[in-house]
Design a binder for these strands. Structure first.
Length: 278
DNA sequence: CGTTGAACCTGTTTGC
DNA sequence: TGCAAACAGGTTCAAC
């Protein structure tokens, strides 16, 4: 469920809710949720949360203890949530990790994930550097035009596949890939390397606009995303094509309907506003 | 290098 | 109503 705007929303709430707090308890319900570093789990007890960041679609907590520092990276997969409290008893079933804090605004953090795609990784500085390097490419919020242009023009595959390829550009998933391509007027099957400069520019600008608006709205809650404070994201109201098969294209003067392609996940697009080639 | 499809899981929605 | 199939925001791996 979480793409960049949802992960960013989570990271921001954690920053104000738990940074400065002391990790007093740390319960791992399912050991297989921790993919790496399980042996270091005991170290975290008594540590202080000094920072929370988003990397791609993952959320990274940094914990300090004495002069040592370690990290907990949470991958949320399709259905993962980090919650300050469980909204209802039905969430108890798939809560795999619970952290308890003192000395900060929130007293707990629960990792809930019914499908269990997504894991937690316990890493030291070098481990985190390796984790980030092997998984994530440029970040949509901070990548310069030059970097973005280089990544797009060097790809021989489809532009939608490129947008969703985490090692190239980190943080875009199926919802935002569709919304960005519609706004940029690009068919998902256009070949990235064959796009001309104005098209790449539109892609860059639309990516930044969509993410700025989506973060502002707290992300998209299609079925069950809720932020740590329990609130839903409101960006779904601004979706123009995602999950809108058969509905009229929202562009003024366009009388076509949104179509859906299957294959590389579902692609929603307008056949007139996003021509296959030009 | 790039694409495709399957696998990993559970829950909900859709269609007959 | 009942049941099976399809589908869901992600990542990874094998095969081509």
């Amino acid at each position: 469920m979480p793409e960049l705007p949802e992960a960013e929303t989570v990271a921001r709430q954690l920053r104000s809710g738990i940074v400065g707090g002391c990790l007093t308890q740390w319960r791992i319900g399912r050991a297989d949720i921790v993919r790496e570093g399980l042996a270091t789990a005991g170290w975290y007890q008594g540590g202080k949360i000094i920072d929370v960041n988003r990397v791609g679609k993952s959320v990274v907590l940094t914990v300090a203890k004495g002069d040592e520092r370690r990290h907990m990276a949470a991958e949320l997969g399709m259905t993962g949530l980090l919650l300050f409290r469980l909204p209802s008893p039905r969430y108890e079933k798939h809560t795999h990790v619970t952290l308890t804090f003192s000395g900060c605004q929130e007293s707990a953090l629960h990792y809930w994930n019914p499908r269990r795609f997504g894991r937690m990784y316990l890493l030291d500085d070098a481990g985190l550097a390796r984790f980030v390097k092997r998984r994530f490419g440029i970040d949509p919020l901070t990548a310069s035009w030059t970097e973005f242009h280089r990544v797009v023009s060097g790809r021989r595959g489809r532009v939608k596949a490129l947008l969703m390829h985490q090692q190239a550009i980190a943080g875009i998933g199926n919802i935002y890939a569709n919304e960005i391509l519609f706004r940029a007027g690009l068919h998902p099957h256009r070949i990235a390397a064959r796009l001309r400069e104005p098209a790449i520019r539109r892609l860059y600008d639309c990516m930044q606009d969509v993410f700025a608006q989506a973060i502002e709205a707290g992300g998209s809650s299609i079925r069950d995303f809720i932020a740590p404070d329990g609130r839903q994201g409101r960006f779904g109201r601004q979706h123009l094509v995602y999950n809108k098969t058969g509905q009229p294209c929202p562009n003024p003067g366009c009388h076509r309907v949104i179509r859906r392609l299957t294959g590389e996940r579902s692609s929603f697009y307008c056949p007139a506003c996003q021509p296959r080639s030009r």
